[in-house]
Design a protein around this nucleic acid. Structure first.
Length: 647
RNA sequence: GCUACUGUGGCUCAAUGGCAGAGCAGCUCAUUCGUAAUGAGCAGGUUGUCAGUUCGAUUCUGACCAGUAGCUCCA
């Protein structure tokens, strides 16, 4: 007999050699029905695992991350089995569970069309209905390779060959004659995957490398219950309604135009207004924090970018002006401001007394992004970055880095995005040396410095190997859009290479010349991208301080127009963004429009209000907020503006 | 750049190898109205662009342009 310690601390006796499944059945059949996998002494295991020693045991249901993954991973095997049944020549690549579902990559003769996807989904339903038993088996690496080779599975063979050296047996799972390389865990039978849906089919490169073959990736999601699947699909539909690329156009924040071109959005008055509000706010705040504004040119001779290394690394991504042979001079629109601001530093000789020297700029940047990479306001060819470069001595680096992060956090909190971001420590990839300048020693030093700083800040971060800039490591502040896709919103970078390249120096106390450390940082990120995320965050209903139009005055009949005009003027003079809707439409009609445009406040002016000097306020989403004096409303509105995020 | 999908008036959508239709929005007129749509009338389209097939193409084919999702990239 062995002792099984459960999650709640209770200890159960069981036969030595009992399966995990039987342990759970012993606890409760209800729990067994909901169990996807388990943890034995903290290690993720299959329900078919045989337990032969005292252990700490935990059943994992769909509510546990690992349980959910086991469930969805099983769904991905069902997908693969269905594809192999319908298209036996298809070669299998990989098929993991991901955040909201699962995918499987296939190498197929023909790409999957929507009709084929339906057929595959139908076949998957059959496999679920057949309720096939899923069995695990192990093979020595050489036999495993032979096994996969015999089936023509070249990708699996490649994967096993990499594992072969470890001397461990290779694990497979088999269901109804379909065997797939997999370390598990998996459910016991296919019948448990009650509710699933294939969502999309796209191309994906083998091992994520664009030099490799392009495979067909089928995305799907799966849940234990149909109702959960439906709720999830409904949530996806709801998320789409917040999509800035749709909502931002509907609300007339921006538009695009074929004649102007891809990735070049036109900011309409409402969108432009929000960007203006943000820019003024950011520049003022930066000034308060000791940053000095520069305005540097939009383009420069190629020589500048050759020194910085951008010419070598990003030549294809730059808009180049002029032809060296014909025009003699070659220019390029700036893809970043770093080397321009360095010239400001270099404009006079520097001493340790000048440091830290903080330059900020609202920079217009131009990057020739590849055609498939543009997306709404999130990824564009011309954008506006709150960009800064800070030159400092080594001993100032930690404090200055911290203050840059504080600035970014302040901005995020003010915008109401703070809860939605995560941190990524973007490191270099020593396996990929050609992507970076500098020596391994320099990289280790720079990353060491940053790691120390991050450790001291106690912020939770994940490591992004290979995500560094070519000249240094980054702290990236990441955010997800409505589709769950993650992008960098704000970045803070440490650079000890470019100062050397540009010959930036300062004279230290002892008279020696030193290169300063440079922090590259953004405060609010790229304005266009931040606007996109704000539209999605607030579903277009901006908080008072950011709303392009804050108040609309709605006279009920023509009789009140003079008074409504007066009110509009008073509010405008008090600094509120206010307009008058004097059209001869019914009140309900005007209200509906203002509501759909997501205005924070509507002021209804009828005979009663016109006579006694009050306004009937209506707050967005809250209906009639009651009658109040104009002064009272003004005070309330101004308080709300000053409070920034208060909702 | 890669794979798939999409493109009909400002927006949402219909129809068809044989004269392209509706609602909303717009304009005009009437209505002067109390918290999410007043009524009537008018106007608006070389069906993304350019080729090809065809007696005839918006429909079929191709290229390009633009949009969407994902992959790759993102200084």
């Amino acid at each position: 007999m062995i002792n099984i310690t459960l999650k709640d601390g209770n200890i159960r006796e069981a036969e030595n050699g009992i399966t995990a499944a039987d342990i759970i059945k012993g606890i409760s059949m209800g729990l067994f029905k909901n169990s996807m996998a388990c943890k034995i002494d903290g290690a993720l295991c299959d329900l078919r695992t045989i337990v032969d020693k005292d252990c700490v045991f935990e059943a994992l249901t769909f509510d546990d991350e690992d349980g959910k993954n086991a469930f969805r991973h099983t769904a991905s095997h069902i997908l693969a089995q269905a594809v192999k049944r319908l298209y036996p020549d298809t070669k299998l690549a990989i098929g993991p569970a991901v955040e909201d579902g699962f995918y499987y990559d296939f190498d197929t003769a023909e790409p999957f069309t929507p009709e084929i996807m339906q057929k595959i989904e139908g076949e998957m339903k059959k496999i679920v209905k057949e309720d096939l038993e899923i069995k695990q088996f192990l093979l020595p690496a050489d036999e495993a390779i032979e096994f996969m080779k015999s089936k023509g599975e070249i990708y699996k063979t490649e994967l096993i060959a990499e594992h072969a050296g470890k001397g461990e047996p290779i694990s497979f799972y088999e269901q109804g004659g379909f065997a797939d390389l997999c370390k598990g865990p998996h459910l016991l039978k296919t019948g448990a995957v009650k509710a699933f849906k294939l969502l999309s089919c796209t191309a994906a490169y083998w091992r994520g490398d664009s030099k490799n073959k392009s495979l067909q990736r089928v995305y799907g999601t799966a849940f234990p219950k149909q109702s959960e699947l439906e709720a999830h699909l409904a949530m996806l539909e709801e998320a789409k309604k917040r999509d800035h690329n749709k909502l931002g156009r509907d609300l007339k924040f921006f538009t695009t135009n074929e004649l102007i071109g891809q990735g070049l959005p036109v900011l309409l008055p409402k969108g432009a207004r929000v960007l203006q509000i943000l820019q003024r706010f950011v520049e003022d705040e930066e000034q308060k924090r000791g940053w000095m504004l520069t305005k540097t040119p939009f383009f420069a001779k190629s020589d500048l970018y050759k020194i910085s290394g951008h010419w070598d690394h990003y030549r294809d991504g730059m808009f180049v002006i002029g032809d060296g042979e014909k025009d003699g001079e070659v220019f390029a629109l700036r893809p970043m401001t770093c080397p321009f601001q360095y010239q400001a530093y270099l404009s006079e000789s520097r001493s340790y007394r000048d440091l830290p020297l903080r330059y900020n700029e609202t920079s217009y940047l131009f990057r020739n992004e590849a055609s498939g990479e543009m997306h709404g306001l999130i990824r564009v060819r011309q954008f506006t970055l709150s960009e800064g470069h800070l030159m400092c001595a080594h001993e100032q680096l930690a404090d200055e880095f911290k203050s840059c992060l504080e600035l970014a956090v302040f901005m995020l909190k003010t915008l109401g995005l703070y809860e939605d971001v995560s941190y990524r420590f973007s490191r270099w990839d020593p396996e990929n040396r050609e992507k970076y300048i500098g020596t391994a020693q320099q990289w280790e030093e720079a990353e060491g410095v940053m790691e120390n700083i991050l450790g001291g800040l106690e912020i939770p971060y994940k490591n992004g190997v290979g995500e560094a800039a070519f000249y240094g490591p980054k702290l990236d502040i990441q955010i997800k859009n409505v589709h769950g896709k993650e992008d960098t919103l704000i970045t803070i970078q440490i650079d000890q290479m470019l100062a050397e390249k540009f010959g930036m120096e300062y004279t230290d106390r002892d008279g020696s010349k030193k290169n300063p450390y440079i922090i590259h940082r953004s405060s609010i990120g790229c304005y266009e991208r931040t606007l996109a995320l704000l539209i999605e965050k607030y579903a277009g209903a901006f908080p008072m301080w950011l709303a392009p139009e804050q108040v609309r005055v709605l006279p009920i009949t023509d009789r009140q127009i003079p008074r409504a005009k007066e009110i509009t003027d008073i509010l405008e003079n008090a600094g509120l963004r206010c307009t008058l809707d004097g059209r001869s439409e019914k009140l309900g009609y005007k209200l509906r429009e203002a509501q759909l445009e997501k205005l924070p406040y509507m002021l209804v002016i009828g005979d009663k209000e016109a006579e006694d000097g009050t306004v009937s306020a209506r707050k967005r989403g809250q209906g009639d907020a009651g009658s109040m004096s104009l002064d009272e409303f003004l005070a309330r509105a101004q308080k709300e503006v000053a409070g920034k995020i208060i909702d």
